[in-house]
Amino acid sequence: MNDSISTTVLLIAFSLLLAALILAFTRLLKGPSINDRIAAMDVISIVVMGFILVYSVLINNAMYFDIPIVISLISFIGTVAVSTYLKHKNG
């Protein structure tokens, strides 16, 4: 392993991600359509993945790598499921 990354960098990354989270969350709440919310949800899931990746660097543990896989998978299926459903309802 390399010598550890300066925590400052990681904290900055955290802050950026947190800001992204809050913004996406705002969109999530504002809507206006379900589709917007889903899009926001997608972004949030990405943000969360980012969080986890950065965090795994922080604690120097590669174990956390499995979670982004799950999240990406899940968010995709969730998106498809919900939009499929919406389509079905609208069309």
């Binding site: 960098v9 950026l16 989270l21």
Partner: peptide, 15 residues
């Protein structure tokens, strides 16, 4: 790492 975070933030702003 910073670039990645930045782009994610950008996405959120864009959203």
């Amino acid at each position: 790492i910073l670039a990645g975070s930045f782009f994610i933030l950008v996405a959120a702003i864009g959203l």
